[in-house]
């Protein structure tokens, strides 16, 4: 069983956290991953910063800029993760855009993922139709290519869900990532449609920040994904972010259970 599958087995309602690598520094990213694991995060998503993150709202855009300005690169992230793996086996999923993977070299990128123990990748600008760009490399190196499903997917849900790997990332709302006060999408109805086509776990992300929202979203699915709310704490506290992020993640983990 893959580490991702096991994470959902051990946590029927999973709290999945996200941080941008290199924000505020790669040393802190490593500490943050360990703190998130300790707080009970079932999976940690790590953003590889990109110059032009078109699916991100302002909070994560700024994190990308900070990380790149600080000299974060894909190679340095792999080095940090190799170091992390000496002490932690928390499932790690990369979130990045297709160009950093393509230009790094797809074979080399996924071989490195396997080598350091990256369990999956989320690539927002590779839709179902273009996944041929990555999927063979993912299979070759045993890395799950996580599919996104949105409320606008409609008749595409079955097609995407059928071939899903790892877990399904259900995008809660239209627009880009970021904190929202209300999520109005009928998540339950979409989850039902996904379940008809796939037995893979479904986690809901985009816009979740409060324990109450996380609880509601996880109740309708298999987990809640939280990014911008964590990145906001990191932005606020800078080098002192690890403690506050741990406290927040602990509260969220409790809320989703």
């Amino acid at each position: 069983m893959s580490k991702i599958a096991k994470a959902f087995q051990d946590n029927p309602k999973a709290f999945i956290s996200f941080v941008t690598a290199g924000d505020p520094s790669l040393a802190k990213t490593k500490e943050l991953i360990l703190a998130l694991e300790k707080a009970g995060s079932a999976i940690v998503e790590i953003g590889i910063p990109f110059s032009d993150p078109v699916a991100e709202g302002e909070v994560i855009q700024r994190a990308n800029i900070r990380a790149l300005a600080g000299g974060c690169t894909t190679d340095k992230i792999f080095d940090m993760l190799a170091d992390l793996r000496k002490t932690s086996q928390v499932p790690i999923v990369f979130l990045t855009y297709v160009n950093p993977i393509f230009t790094y070299g797809r074979d080399k990128f996924f071989a490195k993922c396997q080598e350091v123990g990256v369990d999956g990748v989320i690539v927002p600008d590779v839709p179902f139709e273009e996944k041929g760009e990555l999927v063979d490399y993912c299979r070759k190196y045993g890395v799950d290519l996580i599919s996104l499903i949105a409320q606008t997917s409609d008749q595409r849900i079955q097609m995407i869900a059928k071939e899903a790997m790892g877990y399904i990332y259900l995008v809660s709302s239209l627009g880009v990532t970021g904190v929202r006060s209300n999520i109005t999408t009928d998540i339950g109805a979409i989850v039902k449609k996904i379940r008809e086509a796939s037995d893979k776990p479904v986690a809901v992300g985009f816009g979740i920040s409060t324990p109450q929202q996380a609880k509601e979203m996880a109740a309708l699915s298999d987990g809640a994904i939280v990014g911008s709310a964590i990145v906001k704490i990191i932005e606020k506290y800078g080098d002192d972010c690890v403690g506050p992020v741990y406290e927040y993640a602990k509260e969220m983990t409790e809320a989703v259970k």
Partner: peptide, 22 residues
């Protein structure tokens, strides 16, 4: 190769939210 190709170039690399719009 997928739709809208010019040799190896082109394609439709977009977030899922936009796929139905396109």
């Amino acid at each position: 190769m997928t739709k809208g190709r010019y040799g190896i170039h082109g394609g439709q690399y977009l977030p899922e939210t936009l796929m139905n719009a396109v």
